[in-house]
Simulated scan of single mutants.
Amino acid sequence: MTDKTVSFGYQDVAPQEKTRRVGEVFASVAKRYDIMNDLMSAGMHRVWKDDFVRALKPQPNERILDMAGGTGDIAFRIEKSGASVTVADINPEMLAVGMERAARKDVTSMVWREENAEVLSFPDRSFDAYTIAFGIRNVTDIPAALKEAHRVLGFGGRFFCLEFSTTKWPGFGEAYDLYSEKIVPRIGKAIANDSESYRYLIESIRRFPKMPDFARMIEAAGFKNVKYRPILGGAVAIHTGWKI
């Protein structure tokens, strides 16, 4: 028994309670997840993801694990390079959406796996790269997930994370906060009939560590040459590290 708590949006809850609630959130929003991303970011998430995969520089025949990649947005971009992509997600509803998209696109090369980022079933040194986009903040035990990322990467493997953060642009940050707090839950209600799940998604961004703090967490997991590149003044950031 432990009295440790973790953040679920603005609430502090027991770890197993966060895992359960996050599962419910993504089960609820899975079928509308991609259209909601378009509406919430005015389509900018597509640009960020393109930038993210360009920075990754996937190569033919590389083994790449896309964690929390359920709907396949990152994986489909990587697959075009000829890399071997495994899409992993803890949420079966999100994976189902991704597999349906793959069937429509007639993409048969990708592997789809239900996995917990904190306790992966893959052997040591299974992959050349590990990607996670807008997923790490939803993990209950982030340090454990980072250590697992390090474990399943081979020597020379690279860790790439795309995640929301805190913008430092004067004025923009305040406007973004107002939009996120007041407008996004209303969009969630109108499009997905679920304002509370989107309220959580916004609150989870506010509770996520600042860019330098998250970089230190990546280093603590064993990664070297850890860097981060802010986008929109830090509203979004690409974090990278190497297993060397």
Rank of each mutant, 00 (worst) to 15 (best):
P230H: 10
R104H: 09
K189P: 00
F76M: 08
R207M: 13
V226I: 10
S195D: 13
I90A: 14
D12C: 04
S41N: 08
K210I: 00
K31L: 06
D50W: 05
L39H: 02
Y228Q: 06
A129R: 00
I183V: 15
L95I: 02
A221K: 05
S28L: 10
F134T: 03
D128T: 08
K80A: 14
Y10M: 10
K49E: 04
M40Y: 09
A221Q: 05
G188V: 04
I238H: 14
A129T: 00
G135Y: 00
A117D: 10
A55E: 13
T166Y: 11
Y10P: 00
L178G: 00
R63S: 14
D128M: 06
F214G: 07
S197E: 05
I238R: 07
A117Q: 07
L162C: 08
S81T: 07
V85T: 10
I231F: 13
S121A: 13
K210E: 12
V184W: 02
G9C: 09
E114D: 00
G173P: 07
W112D: 01
V184Q: 03
T5F: 07
S41M: 06
D51R: 12
S109W: 05
E115W: 00
I183A: 13
A237M: 02
G70T: 06
K31V: 10
Y198P: 04
N116K: 13
G9M: 09
D177K: 14
A27N: 15
V87L: 03
I78E: 01
